[in-house]
Amino acid sequence: MAEIIAGVGTSHVPAVGAAIDHAKGDQPYWAPFFDKIAPAREWMAQAKPDVCIVVFNDHASAFSLELIPTFALGVAQTFQPADEGYGPRGVPAAEGHPQLAWHLAESLILDEFDITIANKMPIDHGCTVPLSVMYDQPEAWPCKVIPLCVNVIQYPAPTGNRCYNLGKAIRRAIDSWPGDERVAILGTGGMSHQLQGERAGLVNVDFDLAFMDRLVSDPAGQAQVDHTEYLREAGSEGIELVMWLIMRGALDEQVREVYRAHHVPTSNTSNGLIILENAANDPITAPLTEAA
């Protein structure tokens, strides 16, 4: 059967994508950040998942206020990079996995998660930047991609608990798929940041680090944190962190934290990355450490 091999939590900041696209990684502003994510790329190169389920949110790209699905699962053969106003990012289109995606859709809906099915869904920075973070600039993405788009822009986003339970349902779906795919799940967005209003620029490192701690050891507890606490403590756009709970729900109760990075700032955002493997499985790589 197919297997969830790991979960990755990562921010999906557009400026990071632009830094990669325009080869700014060596600049003093960016070099410390890229040094911190280098071990994660090394892990990804060794883990080689066949499929990445990328949990992300659309930022007024594929969906507008005309239609606001809480959860939309991409079942297409191909997902094109969206034009967010600059012209599309110059990154490869993502190849989907329609058979597995349709299985996920069927399994989730029969499991009482009434997701929206998307046959056409251009992917914006929410989905493409995590791929760039993990894979840098390949000719083609080395994995198939199943995008799962979550509404976190129009209040209310789904609760943390709903997200956590959706992750568990995704796990049941993968476990029941007869193929032999090795699947990674990426929960993206965050960490603390506020783009809007007079409070723009809010960063709360204590919140971010506590979130990562609890994601590892007490996800059910973290799933009880309500929207107002995210809004107040992590900033109005920090609510994106509920998407990391979908990733966490797809893993075993006991996980091994194999890597963590945290960096302030990337543009207006506190940037975090975490890699989790199921504790019961053998480690995928030798221990990872940040380059000195």
């Binding site: 557009p14 400026a15 783009l195 723009a200 809010l202 960063v203 302030v264 700032p265 543009s267 207006n268």
Partner: peptide, 27 residues
């Protein structure tokens, strides 16, 4: 986004961008 953030919070771009480098706006 930093230019817009500066405008919304009533500071210059330089001030906003320095605030972010210094760790952002504290909670």
């Amino acid at each position: 986004m930093q230019q817009v953030g500066a405008s919304m919070s009533g500071v210059t771009f330089e001030e906003f961008s320095q605030m972010m480098i210094d760790g952002g706006r504290s909670a």
